[in-house]
Amino acid sequence: MKKIALIIIGVIGFIVIFLGVSLIAGYNKLVEVNEEVDYQYSEIDRRLQQRYDTLTQLATAVNGFQTHEQTIYDMITSAREAYAAAKASGDLEGMVQADALQSVALTNLLALFEDNEPLQATEAYGDYMDAVWGIESALSEARRQYNLSVQEYNLYVRKFPGVLYASLFNYDNEIAYWKVAEGATQIPDIVFGD
């Protein structure tokens, strides 16, 4: 009788320890994948800020070279305001929208550069294009890394036992991917040395 009681206590103890360890490991994994998403999001944020700085520099460069400055400045201002509002609210959709607005402003600026021969002849032209290519490349990579981290998170919280931990600890059961307008994720095809 005593032996059976010991076995039952042992089995219950084993189950309690097993559940406890699983719970701790599962919770830690949940925190880890969630933290990675937050980190990658902050990386996109940092790159968007860098792109805004690059846009401002480019806008200064075209100043005086073309007749539609106001339109370009309005576009950049809209992109900046959308970015600041989205950042303040922490709204993913707003950030994606701000990203798209910046892309439009950048594309228009590059078009102005292409149409402006005196501007292309300046020594700084190549530098501006390098800055644009660099930041677009970095932003594209930041978006990709963010989406990879979201994919890992979503897979974890949908599969067993992650689904239980997410529900138990009140974590989102899905995080939205960073989806941008078609073509906006592509790095402008700036070719040198041909």
Partner: peptide
């Protein structure tokens, strides 16, 4: 690294 860089074509 996070994608920052440059390229040149010959």
């Amino acid at each position: 690294s996070g994608g920052m860089g440059i390229r040149r074509r010959r």
